[in-house]
Amino acid sequence: MSKIQALGLDVGSTTVKMVGLDAEGEMAWHFLEQAEPLLENQIARFLERARNVTGPLDGIPLVATGYGRGLVNQATRTVTEITCHARGIYRELGHGGTLVDIGGQDSKVIGISPQGKVIDFTMNDKCAAGTGRFLENTASRLKVSLDRMGPEALSVSDEVSISSTCTVFAESEVISLIAHGVSIASILRGLHRSLVKRMVSMILTVGLTPPLMLSGGVAQNPAIRQMLEEETGQKIILPHYPQLMGACGAALFALDA
């Protein structure tokens, strides 16, 4: 493993991610865990793990991002997740465009210039609809594991319409659909469509400049990818590690230091 020269820590609502970069800015190490309630303890554990890999962290700059960035007292500086995601994805893909990041607590659409700068952005952060939490909730209600949701949704062509855009009401709607004998797969397909339609309205707020890129944990869901392509008419470009783009961007800022 190359020597780690900079660290990025993305303290998200669902997962915490850490990335170590070598002197060339290539990812040399990464680590990811589900977020825990006592974030300070978890952050200390992440740093300990990094120390085990790199040796003493003295002199290795650390930039924190994500909604819990303010809790990382050890960070050299903090940068918002919007700026970090843009930086991370630009480094990996080498072009601008429109980045959709569907996270656990919020979703973002970021317009990135051909030079890799953020030129516009919007966030859905007022309700859970349009976020990973929407899928998590319904997965739990339908007793389908998160990683099976996408394939299940794509396994059928019948799609029910989920009229509610609120996660709580959508859950009630799902219960009603089950009671009416609608198949789980058709319900899942409808739920994915509902989430994607919300994302598309956010994309239109910023303006869709191709290519369309996807990051965040939800990017691993094939139904989201396919439906986003269907709704926008654009091919989706995925980075190698969609969940790590924020931490990567943070580490790149650390490397600048």
């Binding site: 909604y67 918002t80 997740e81 919007i82 700068k117 952005f121 966030m123 952060d125």
Partner: peptide
Amino acid sequence: LSHQALTRLEAFLEM
């Protein structure tokens, strides 16, 4: 003032 609003503000200033 919500944490989310502050993040937007901060991201905008970074931008």
